[in-house]
């Protein structure tokens, strides 16, 4: 048994954790005692982290937001206070940045993009897909870091929803401990002068499930020719998130946040519907660990068919509306 410290650089504004964030708590529960540290304010933390399994929630004096390096100071202090043997975070860039810096300060190891974390004997072992999902590795701290905490980011959709629900009891009042951190001073080895925020623009949040956490993703490429309408309708029926290839995001047909692939997001849903996407290696690297892949493409030689569980050589503007109609018919 070890103490796990779960790190949320920030918390959702609506006060409830996403499915992927709950997965982190469930993963921590599987390792031992669960503690949490967040840059969000104490109030926001008390609201979102109302699970009986959490023994302590650490916050700063007030809100601390990335890219403020004080976030790393807060983490460092929380590791000391909790005596954590493992620190877990989401696989998003602000969390990765903070954990990477923490790893330097603690002179320890960091594993990003894990899908499972378990104790095996004395060791904490992390499973992770690498080389665009073509290999799976397991790794743990080397002797050079023995006795120090292991830092890990985990991808969403790694633990199934029932297991997560079974591991957590909502409705509790968490014990929140404010830690003294000089927000904005970025102690440690920070350079002179500050990073100044000139402008911040909230990115539009869609009504749909988040792309990385969705159980179903409907993705479109250059073949949609600027019209995501039919894909949107299908996504409505399937409760899906909308994804895209870089050709579609570069064309400005849809926001860059929808890009799936090497330089976009990595998704691992139960179902990935690929429409009008050729299946270049950079696109495949972001979706080939999906459980089931359905592809629709006019070109029978499109590489996406090499990895599709079910493929249709056809026009997406005919096939997708028919899918929508058939699903509606079945729903009665």
């Amino acid at each position: 048994m070890t103490t796990a410290l779960v790190f949320f650089d920030s918390l959702p504004a609506d006060g409830s954790l996403s499915a992927g964030q709950k997965e982190l708590l469930a993963a921590a529960r599987g390792l031992g005692e669960v503690t949490v540290v967040t840059g969000a304010s104490g109030e926001a933390a008390a609201q979102a982290l109302d699970f009986a399994e959490i023994s302590t929630v650490y916050t700063g004096d007030g809100e601390i937001a990335a890219p403020d390096a004080a976030l790393v100071d807060l983490l460092e202090t929380a590791v000391q206070e909790s005596g954590a043997g493992v620190v877990l975070g989401s696989d998003v860039s602000e969390t990765t940045d903070a954990l990477a810096r923490l790893a330097v300060r603690l002179d320890t190891g960091l594993i990003t993009g894990g899908i499972a974390v378990e104790t095996s004997g004395e060791q904490v072992v992390v499973t992770k897909p690498v080389l665009a999902g073509t290999y799976t590795t397991t790794a743990s701290l080397a002797d050079a870091a023995a006795g120090r905490p292991l830092l890990v980011t985990l991808r969403p959709n790694s633990i199934d929803a029932e297991q997560v629900a079974a591991a957590l009891s909502p409705g509790a009042e968490p014990e929140v401990t404010g830690l003294p951190v000089n927000a904005g001073l970025g102690g440690g080895a920070a350079a002179e002068g500050q990073i100044e925020i000139l402008e911040r623009t909230e990115l539009e949040k869609s009504e749909r499930p988040s792309l990385t956490e969705a159980r179903v993703v409907v993705a479109g490429g250059r073949g949609v020719e600027g019209d995501f309408g039919p894909l949107e309708e299908l996504a409505d029926e399937l409760g899906a998130a909308i994804g895209a290839s870089r050709a579609a995001t570069d064309a400005g047909w849809i926001d860059h946040a929808a890009q799936v692939g090497q330089t976009g997001v990595t998704v691992s849903p139960q179902l990935y519907v690929s429409a009008g996407i050729s299946g270049a290696v950079q696109q495949r690297s972001g979706m080939q660990t999906s459980q089931t892949i359905v592809a629709i493409n006019k070109d029978e030689d499109a590489p996406v068919f090499e990895i599709a569980d079910f493929g249709v050589v056809g026009d997406l503007f005919e096939v997708i509306p028919q899918m929508v109609e058939e699903i509606r018919r079945r729903k009665g």
């Binding site: 190891g109 690498v130 999902g133 290999y135 397991t138 790794a139 080397a142 090499e306 056809g314």
Partner: peptide, 23 residues
């Protein structure tokens, strides 16, 4: 010195094409 040790690296069975039909 590396702070991590890798215990295993297994190739995932490559995804194979399933059923492909023409509309």
């Amino acid at each position: 010195e590396a702070k991590l040790q890798v215990h295993s690296a297994e190739a995932r069975p490559p995804r194979t094409a399933g059923e492909i039909i023409t509309d």
